[in-house]
Computed example of a mutant assay.
Amino acid sequence: MDSSSPASASPPPATAETGRHAYRPKLRWQPDVEEYFAAAYGRDRFALISEALAHPSCYSCIRVNTLKSSTDAVMHKLMDIVSENGLSVGINGLDIGDQNSGSNTHEGNSMVHKCPYTGLENVIFVRGSGPHVLQYDSQPEQSVKEVIVSRKCAESVLRGAQVYVPGVLACSAHVERGDKVAVSVAVEQAVEDGGWAVDAHYEERKGLYIGQGITAMSRAGIFHVPHGIAVEMTERVYQLPSFNGTDILYAESFAS
Rank of each mutant, 00 (worst) to 15 (best):
D44L: 11
S4E: 12
V144K: 01
V163D: 01
E204T: 12
E141C: 14
S60C: 15
S242N: 12
A7L: 12
A47S: 14
F125K: 02
T118K: 14
I229E: 12
T18W: 01
A186Y: 06
N244G: 12
P13Q: 09
V144I: 08
N109H: 07
E232W: 01
H132M: 05
H201D: 01
G160L: 00
L94F: 15
V198I: 13
R43S: 15
E34R: 04
G119W: 09
K152G: 02
T215C: 09
F254K: 05
K114Y: 01
A182Q: 04
V231R: 02
V157R: 01
C58F: 02
G90T: 11
A173E: 14
A255R: 01
K206Q: 14
W29Y: 14
P131W: 03
C61E: 13
P25F: 02
V175W: 02
V147K: 04
Y117R: 11
Y41Q: 12
C61R: 08
A220N: 10
A173K: 03
P11D: 04
E146V: 08
Q239T: 05
Y250D: 14
A73I: 07
S5M: 09
D247K: 06
H227Y: 08
G90K: 13
G228W: 11
V198A: 07
S60P: 14
D72Q: 09
S143W: 02
V225Y: 04
M233S: 07
G167S: 09
C58I: 12
H132I: 11
Y136D: 01
R43Y: 00
Y202V: 06
K152I: 10
R45P: 02
L27W: 08
E107I: 14
R43N: 07
H76A: 13
N244E: 13
A186T: 01
P116I: 00
R24N: 04
M75K: 05
G211C: 05
S50M: 13
S8A: 15
G167C: 00
P140N: 05
N109C: 13
Q99A: 04
V198N: 01
L249Y: 08
W29R: 00
S70R: 00
A39Q: 08
G102P: 00
N122A: 10
V181W: 01
R28V: 15
S60Y: 11
S57N: 13
I210Q: 03
A220W: 11
Q99R: 07
A255L: 10
P56N: 02
L78P: 06
S242H: 08
L169W: 01
T246A: 00
Y117D: 13
S10M: 08
A197T: 15
D199A: 07
